[in-house]
Each structure stands twice: as C-alpha cells, then as structure tokens.
Nucleic acid binder design. Structure first.
Length: 233
DNA sequence: CGGCCGATCCACT
DNA sequence: GTGGATCGGCCGA
C-alpha cells in the first residue's frame, strides 16, 4: 500500500456539507509512541457555524471553540458529558466556524492497539463506532485541539483513503444525533449505507431532574416528537 | 434488542 | 447552577 500525503488545506476550504460527504471513506491516522491506529470514516456530521443552532459556535467565539474560527484542516477537540472527547475537522475560510464531527469509522490499522484502548468493545466494529469511541480508539484527546491535520509531519492526519471512493448512492443523510431544537431538523449527518460501524441513531433527549412535587404530570410539556431520519439505520 | 439511567466535570449562563 | 454533538451496564421482554 503506497504512502499518501494528507488531504491538503484546500480540501477543507469548501462548503462544510460538501466536505462532510467527501470525508466518508477517508482515513484518519494517529501515530503515537505505541504505534499507529487508522480509522476509515463511515459517519460524520456537518456543523454550520454561527447560523446553526446545533453548533458550538452558534453563540459566538469562546475559549473552547476558538479553533473553529481558525484555519481549515485543523482539529477541534471538545470535552463533553464529563468524560468524553470528540473531534472535528475545521472547514471553510478562517473566521467562519464550520466543522465536521467525526462520528464513527472502521479501524483499518493498529487493530490490536485499538483493542487495548477500547477494552469494553465486544466486536471489532464497535472499536470506533461513536464519536467518543473513535477518539479513544485513535488515542486523541485535548492535546490535539488545534492540531494541523494537513501537515505531513503531524502525528494526526487525514489521508485520502482508498482510491475507489464510496459510490454516490451509498451515502445517506439524516438528522444529527443528539441535536435538539431548530437545528435538529437539518439532515446534516452523513453515513455509508449499510456499514456496520455506523453508530446507532439517538434523538436528542433533555434530561430534566425529577420534580419533587407529584401529581402535576404534564404530558403536553414534552417537546415535539423526535424526528427519526427517514432512512436512518 | 430496546429502554432507562448514572457517571463525571467543564463551559457557559 | 445547569446541562451537554456520549457511553456502557442493567433490566425486562
């Protein structure tokens, strides 16, 4: 297998949804002192910056999301739910906080190391099936926030992947996972149809603390029926 | 297999 | 103080 250079900056300096679709089938590779792990992407989500209610950048620039306002092709890593890291690739021109969340993939190199990092994974397909699982399998955490994935000398890069691109008809789209409110309707999650490493779809759930008082249960307070992707797996 | 729930802590209100 | 671009264990069917 020939060694390839990472996808260049220009790959990411395009409309974010186009980049998201084009990332399917590409290969993210992290090389640590323990060795390399590479993941072929099967599921991603586009986040369209300042006008996207689902985006971390919707309410403007903060210390956490600063990387999204910078160079395309750099990595935005955030911490969530008190214990998980998730990684994005920054898209569009500097100043526009677009990004693609890497949600799932298939481990195509460093399988043994990935298993060590993900001991709870029952099957090989579960090693990077989910955004937080993917970062664990790769060994990515906040140290990589701001890293340049287009630099050939970087430990973390995105490679072009197999010469044969996924067939156009094999790319599906649907609502993003865990995104509530206005942004929920946007079908900006993309995945490879039928791929076993695509994560399970979960509608956004608001977790309210149990109400102390009883007897005032109000079913009408529930938000609208969660939208299932028409073609979600 | 699907639903429920706790874990765990940081960013932002 | 609140809740999150999640995960895995446990439960019942």
């Amino acid at each position: 297998m020939p060694t390839a250079d990472p996808l260049p900056r220009a790959f990411y300096d395009r409309p974010v949804r186009a980049v998201a679709r084009d990332l399917l089938g590409r290969v993210v590779r992290h090389t640590s002192p323990e060795g390399p792990v590479a993941v072929r992407l099967t599921e991603v989500e586009a986040y369209a910056g300042a006008h996207d209610p689902g985006s971390h950048a919707f309410r403007g620039r903060t210390p956490r999301n600063a990387v999204m306002f910078g160079e395309p092709g750099h990595v935005y890593v955030y911490f969530t739910y008190g214990m998980h890291w998730c990684m994005n690739l920054v898209c569009g021109p500097p100043g526009k906080p677009f990004a693609v969340l890497l949600r799932a993939g298939e481990v195509v190199d460093g399988h043994d190391l990935a298993r060590v990092r993900r001991p709870s994974a029952r099957a090989a397909r579960d090693l990077a099936r989910g955004p937080a699982r993917l970062t664990v399998a790769l060994g990515v955490d906040k140290r990589y926030d701001g890293a340049d994935a287009t630099d050939p000398s970087s430990a973390l890069v995105v490679l072009p992947g197999p010469a044969r691109r996924p067939a156009r008809g094999s790319v599906r789209s649907g609502p993003r996972v865990g995104v509530a409110g206005a942004g929920a309707a946007r079908p900006w999650r993309y995945w490879l149809d039928g791929d076993p490493t695509v994560s399970a779809y979960r509608p956004a759930v608001s977790r309210r603390r149990p109400v102390a008082a009883s007897g005032t249960l109000d079913p009408s307070s529930l938000p609208g029926e969660p939208q299932r992707g028409a073609t979600a797996p």
